Simulated scan of single mutants.
Amino acid sequence: MHVKAFDYLRVLAETGSLRGAAQKIGITPTALTRQLEHLEYFFRTPLFEREQHGVRLTAAGEVVMESAGRVSRELAISHRRVEDLKGLRRGTVRIRASGSTLTSVIAPALDALHRDYPGLRFVIEMSGAPQIASALLSGEADLGLTLFAPDLSELTLCARLPVVHSAIMSPTHPLRNNTNISLHDLRDQSLSLPDAGYFVRQAFDRVIRPGEPDFDPVFMSGSFDLQIDLAMRGCAVLLLPEFTCRPLIDRGLLCAVPLPARLRVPTALDLLRASHRPLSHAARVTSARIGEIMARLT
Rank of each mutant, 00 (worst) to 15 (best):
E66K: 15
A22D: 02
A203F: 12
L85Q: 10
E66A: 11
N178M: 08
T28R: 12
R273D: 02
R262F: 10
D250A: 13
E83R: 08
A282V: 03
A236K: 11
D250S: 11
V200N: 07
A31I: 00
S104A: 15
G91R: 04
V257E: 02
T92A: 02
L143F: 00
G222Q: 08
A97H: 00
R50F: 04
P210D: 12
L175K: 10
L137W: 03
V265N: 02
L32S: 05
H184W: 07
S170I: 13
E242K: 14
A231N: 00
P194Y: 10
V218R: 12
R73H: 09
K24V: 08
I27K: 15
L47F: 07
R201W: 03
P130E: 05
T101H: 15
G61T: 05
R56K: 14
R206L: 09
S275Q: 00
D270M: 03
P150N: 06
S192Y: 14
S153T: 07
F43V: 11
G128W: 04
P278N: 13
F224G: 03
P174G: 06
D214G: 13
R10S: 11
P213L: 04
I168S: 01
H184N: 10
V200A: 11
T92E: 11
L113Q: 07
L75T: 02
V105M: 14
R246M: 14
S134I: 00
A295P: 01
Y117Q: 13
A236C: 15
L271M: 05
R80M: 01
I25S: 13
V93R: 04
H281V: 01
V164H: 11
G291Y: 10
R89I: 03
E51T: 15
V64M: 05
T156I: 07
G197C: 01
N177I: 07
Y41E: 08
T101P: 09
T103Y: 03
I27R: 12
Y117G: 04
S223N: 09
A236Y: 02
E49Y: 01
L136P: 09
I181Q: 03
E154K: 07
L175F: 15
A236I: 05
P260G: 02
L254G: 06
V285Y: 03
F243D: 03
C245M: 08
A97D: 02
Q189L: 09
P108N: 10
L248P: 07
L175P: 00
L36D: 01
S78R: 15
L155E: 01
L254V: 12
I95A: 05
G197R: 12
L226D: 13
D250C: 07
I228R: 15
E125P: 01
I181A: 07
A76M: 06
P162G: 09
I132K: 05
H38Y: 07
T58V: 02
P174V: 12
P213V: 03
R115G: 08
P210W: 09
A5T: 06
R246T: 10
R10L: 13
E83C: 09
H114L: 12
F148H: 10
P118S: 03
R121Q: 01
L145F: 11
I27C: 15
H79R: 14
A22L: 04
P118H: 04
E66T: 08
P118V: 00
V164I: 13
A149S: 08
A159V: 07
R50C: 02
S221E: 00
A256P: 15
A283L: 08
V105S: 06
D214L: 14
